[in-house]
């Protein structure tokens, strides 16, 4: 941005300037629909970082780009851009396209976590691996232990969701996946957590 960048036009007389500034200030105060606040997606970089911190061995972050359906698609999931002194978050508002991409990418990630029950696809840190091994005995009763389920939920979700959200997730899988195989169940559990607004949206 050059010398004539974002500034009120200075050619107007002082009375006009006062009126313009007042009008501009009034506009800022207006709670119009156009300015309504809405959470946006955290973006692929933030989600990758969070999952790496929670699940990957220290210093060995996941390379989750392999799960994106196409190169450059990370930008469509929410990204920071800079122009001059402006630093803005772009493409974070949920739309049909980024939802499609999130769905495809997180399905792939969840499938990889589920497949890790039989053949490791991702490198996990020790504590999560212990929880995963227990969960991978599903549908055995030991996998349905409250401590195991809560540890898995917390590992993936972090502390972003309410206890009520955890209970809804736990009850759904205990009821609907009671006899399903571990690979499918763990993948579905992971997918259900990562598609939750508490996981994907910035507060």
């Amino acid at each position: 941005m050059g010398p004539g960048g974002a500034r009120p036009h200075l050619g107007a007389n002082p009375a006009m300037m006062r009126a313009l500034l007042l009008a501009a200030f009034s506009l800022l105060l207006q709670p119009t629909g156009a300015m309504a606040q809405s959470s946006q997606f955290k973006g692929w970089a933030a989600v990758s970082r969070e999952l790496s911190i929670r699940l990957a061995p220290p210093g060995q972050p996941f390379d989750l780009d392999e799960f994106l359906p196409s190169r450059s698609m990370d930008e469509l999931l929410g990204t920071w851009t800079t122009f001059g002194t402006e630093h803005r978050f772009r493409n974070g508002t949920p739309n049909a396209l980024n939802m499609t991409i999130w769905h495809a990418a997180l399905s792939g990630f969840a499938k990889a976590v589920g497949q890790s029950c039989t053949s490791p696809r991702l490198m996990f840190h020790e504590r999560f691996l212990t929880t995963l091994h227990k969960l991978c005995t599903w549908p055995a009763p030991a996998a349905k232990d409250e401590g195991v389920l809560l540890a898995f939920w917390t590992s993936v979700m972090g502390y972003n969701a309410s206890e009520h959200e955890y209970a809804a997730w736990r009850d759904f899988f205990l009821r609907e996946y009671a006899t399903e195989p571990a690979t499918e169940t763990v993948a579905a559990m992971t997918f259900a957590i990562t598609m939750n607004p508490s996981f994907l949206l910035n507060r």
Binding site: S39, P94, N98, M99, H103
Partner: peptide, 21 residues
């Protein structure tokens, strides 16, 4: 709130996503 508004957008987008896919 912001979270609810974002979730509403997610919901509408999810409903359209199969068509876009």
């Amino acid at each position: 709130g912001r979270m609810a508004a974002g979730a509403r957008r997610m919901l509408a987008s999810l409903d359209q996503a199969p068509d876009v896919h």
